[in-house]
Simulated assay, not measured.
Amino acid sequence: MPDDLDAVFKALADATRRRILDRLREEGGQTLVRLCAGTGMSRQAVAKHLAVLQGAGLVTVVPQGREHRHYLNPVPINEIQERWIVHYERDRLEALALLKKALEDKP
């Protein structure tokens, strides 16, 4: 388990990989070409980031004919949340979230 979490934390440490995960959260099943669109990065660079994400279990790849579809796997992130956030910070985080919402909703 610690080695798995180390890989997840390493994968999440990079802003580009987090953006890729955000894009997959918004729309799963994207191809490499689609994930490259608008990033200004080469296919090889995006493929390397995807390999790290896949190695950490954050991305699942499903072959579909000649294409490979990429999907977000939220399970490792949930494991981090269960291990680190729920047990230690739930009450404080909930209070801060409520305060933030109240301040943002204030006219």
Rank of each mutant, 00 (worst) to 15 (best):
I20H: 04
E67D: 06
K10H: 00
R25D: 10
T39L: 09
E89I: 12
D22C: 04
T16K: 09
A15W: 06
A45P: 00
L58Q: 01
E89W: 05
L53W: 06
D6E: 15
L93W: 14
Q44D: 15
R25Y: 11
L32I: 10
R66Y: 05
H87Q: 11
K100D: 10
K10W: 03
R25W: 11
Q81P: 04
Q30H: 05
A56V: 04
T39V: 08
I80P: 02
R43T: 13
Q81K: 12
A51P: 01
E79G: 02
K106L: 12
A7M: 00
T31R: 05
N73I: 07
R43V: 08
R83L: 08
E82D: 13
I80S: 01
Q30S: 03
D4H: 14
A11E: 01
N73E: 13
A7C: 05
R19T: 11
T31C: 11
A7L: 07
D22K: 08
G57F: 00
P63G: 15
L35T: 03
H70F: 09
A56L: 03
P76E: 10
R92L: 08
A102P: 11
I85Q: 11
I77G: 02
V62C: 05
L98M: 05
G28Q: 07
V33I: 14
P63Q: 13
L5H: 14
E26R: 07
L5M: 11
R19N: 08
Q81S: 05
R34F: 01
A56Y: 02
D105M: 11
T16V: 06
T31L: 14
V33N: 15
V52Q: 04
V46P: 01
